[in-house]
Design a protein around this nucleic acid. Structure first.
Lengths: 259, 259
DNA sequence: CGGCGCTGGTTCATTATTTGAACCATTGGT
DNA sequence: ACCAATGGTTCAAATAATGAACCAGCGCCG
């Protein structure tokens, strides 16, 4: 692992519930030498990727990340485009919706929207990191990802989040085949019990899935009618989002009109 | 300069008008050795900071920057909060508005909003990089920044963007003193001729300016009445934004109600 | 008080990584 | 068939990263 990767890996210890990290904490979390962490963080700070608090000297993410994100949005406006689509999708389905991006080894939630229709709803954070095999979004991405990438993900041990999580690679592969038949992914309680989640992949210009759009609902509310509504709305919203970011589905992707 | 800083500096060559950069271009832009650039970009790619196009193999910013930005927003929600404030400010003033963040050596535009009221308006890009001394936003930030930081910025030669740009450090210092009297910054044609821009600083929890909120209008439309409207609206919006991100102005910052 | 345990920060000889000139393989244009 | 680009690779030499030990400061507790 090169020095740059080490420095960047330090950034991955920031999470929604840990937005500030002190030097000692960071050395413990990373397992690196304190001097190393200190110097690396110093460089990250010079470049504006992190900044240090005045009083406790804890590190937090810096303004440079916003700059880069704004830049990325200028070329591939997935965030700004998805915001409106999420809002509409939440209104239409009456449930919580979110977009996620596929990463090397995990899936990250980017943005979400709630519906005011029901008092009980699935709540979430932005910038959450979840696994591929246990979420409908992750499975939707895998179903339309590079086969080599799928095998790489499945080669690691699969964490059992709940009693319903698929942890056998073969079961996951079967699930992916099933998803490819309909173009829709759904999981019932495999990441959190009592949550029934549907997802569709979002495609980039290279016809590969780069992320997913999902609807998460309490399992108790999932009637056959509700399920049909969600699936239809998701198909439309997914196609719209893929189109708006300049992507296109692969030739074998099931059409909206199908089934 | 350490290896990490070098790698991160490569990211700074991405700009709104250059969202994809090939290996050779990047080598030329950075002045580094091609092998070095290749390896550094490889590491950045592994961490998801950049990704490579399938066909031309050009690099573009990757999804990881969105993840980090979402994380930063979770702790200091300047972007999401400013969006609404910008929209309201644009409606109220009828002009183009934007937020910028102060950086080590430059100021970056983060987000903007237009007003539909007039056909002619100042247009802008998000993620633009501008100078401190030539923009109302930059001057507003400097006026409430660390004195040592101000001197550091003024120690570099000041670029003359237009015939009206302040390039004498003493003139800039005088301007900063003037800004501190009112809490408001304004420039007429110092970055682009014919643009009259007003700005107020945005404060962090440490009572120091971390960014600025600005209204940019065509100079031809700037009547005394319009100026008064803009200044009043800016004061209110700035105070609201500072408050919403958990910041607070220094004790000597002129009150909204004053003058 | 005075020592303990923590924090962030620093040093410097040892070690491992980065560096860059030259190289190869492809591609597209003339 | 050539030339000039492109992205990608190699390996000895040079340079940068490393980590154990070390300060200094703070809050706590008996």
């Amino acid at each position: 692992m090169g020095t740059v990767s080490k420095a960047l890996s330090l950034l991955s210890f920031f999470a929604p519930d840990r937005t500030e990290i002190g030097l000692s904490d960071l050395t413990r979390l990373s397992g690196m030498n304190k001097a190393t962490v200190y110097r690396l963080m110093g460089e990250l700070q010079e470049s504006g990727f992190v900044e240090q608090g005045e009083n406790d000297r804890a590190y937090r993410l810096g303004p440079q990340v916003l700059h880069l994100a704004a830049l990325r949005e200028a070329s591939t406006p997935i965030l700004s485009v998805s915001r409106r689509i999420l809002r509409e999708l939440s209104e239409e389905t009456g449930e919580t919706t979110h977009v996620s991006l596929g990463h090397e080894t995990w899936v990250q939630t980017l943005s979400h929207a709630y519906s005011p229709r029901h008092a009980t709803k699935v709540t979430m954070d932005d910038a959450q990191t979840v696994t591929y095999h246990a979420t409908s979004s992750g499975l939707a991405i895998l179903a339309y990802a590079d086969p080599a990438f799928v095998e790489q993900v499945l080669s690691h041990p699969l964490k059992m989040h709940t009693s319903k999580t698929l942890v056998d690679p073969d079961e996951v592969r079967a699930k992916l085949a099933q998803i490819r038949e309909t173009g829709l992914s759904d999981t019932l309680g495999s990441f959190e019990l009592e949550v029934h989640s549907h997802a569709v992949p979002i495609f980039g210009a290279d016809h590969k899935a780069l992320g997913a759009l999902a609807v998460a609902a309490p399992a108790s509310r999932m009637s056959p009618d509700q399920k049909k509504t969600i699936q239809a709305a998701l198909r439309r919203a997914g196609a719209a989002l893929t189109h708006r970011i300049g992507g296109s589905p692969p030739a074998d992707y099931p059409q909206d009109t199908a089934r």
